[in-house]
């Protein structure tokens, strides 16, 4: 009995000590545990395993991270490196679910303040071909149109929104999508001159 009591006392004290260390470094430990989860997801992606559920759970659980004042600049920088790698892996999966997650990752990076992430398309270890880049562009445009049509309902209103985005954002996708939509509407007999002028002005400005 005496031995049990001694062990229990020792255990209590050690648990107190460990609890104190964990509490003192709580946010740092949170960050490291989360980063390790991201690293596991990245490894799974490299190995071609499904990651959508894990990554969705991660993004939901740590959604406050980008604005978290507790993260110092080195932690933000480190997280940025992970986001960049994830983004590149996701966009090269060429499917809607991975693209949506890549969009979210890029949004995280923007909120984090580590700069916008570039899309670098690759195919099986080689530099992405022109065809790969075009295919990915079409994918993104298709997703954009899905969202816009749900909200707006008419192509002309969508075109107006797309031109607004092209004017405010530095993303060639919007210019390409606007040009494509204008040409389609012209073929369908719509009056497109004002839109062509807007797009031309935009191209001159940039």
């Amino acid at each position: 009995m005496i031995k049990t009591e001694t062990i229990n006392r020792l255990e209590d004290r050690l648990a107190h000590l460990i609890g104190g260390v964990l509490a003192k470094k709580e946010s740092q430990i949170d960050f490291l545990i989360g980063l390790n989860q991201l690293d596991d997801i990245l490894i799974s992606l490299h190995e071609g395993q499904p990651v959508i559920d894990d990554l969705t759970r991660f993004l939901s659980r740590y959604r406050a991270w980008p604005e978290d004042g507790n993260l110092d600049s080195s932690q933000r920088k480190r997280l940025g490196v992970f986001l960049n790698s994830l983004n590149q892996e996701l966009v090269n999966r060429h499917d809607t679910d991975h693209f949506k997650l890549a969009e979210e990752i890029r949004e995280w990076a923007q909120r984090l303040g580590t700069g916008s992430l570039k899309l670098i398309f690759k195919s099986s270890g080689e530099q992405a071909s022109l065809a790969d880049r075009f295919y990915s562009l079409l994918r993104r445009e298709s997703e954009e149109m899905n969202i816009l049509l749900t909200e707006r309902g008419h192509l002309l209103t969508c075109l107006d929104d797309i031109l607004n985005s092209a004017e405010s954002k530095n993303d060639r996708m919007y210019q390409h999508l606007a040009a494509s939509l204008i040409y389609f509407l012209k073929l369908e007999g719509y009056k497109t001159d004002p839109y062509i002028k807007r797009l031309s002005r935009l191209k001159e400005d940039k």
């Binding site: 648990a15 460990i18 964990l22 430990i29 490291l32 545990i33 980063l35 390790n36 690293d39 596991d40 990245l42 490894i43 490299h46 490196v81 992970f82 790698s85």
Partner: peptide, 23 residues
């Protein structure tokens, strides 16, 4: 291809996680 963290860094993170779970 491996992840970004080294095996030692990953072990450290897993150790912290286990400590939190009292394992």
């Amino acid at each position: 291809m491996d992840g970004i963290l080294t095996p030692e860094e990953k072990a450290y993170c897993r150790g912290l996680e286990a400590l939190r779970k009292k394992d």
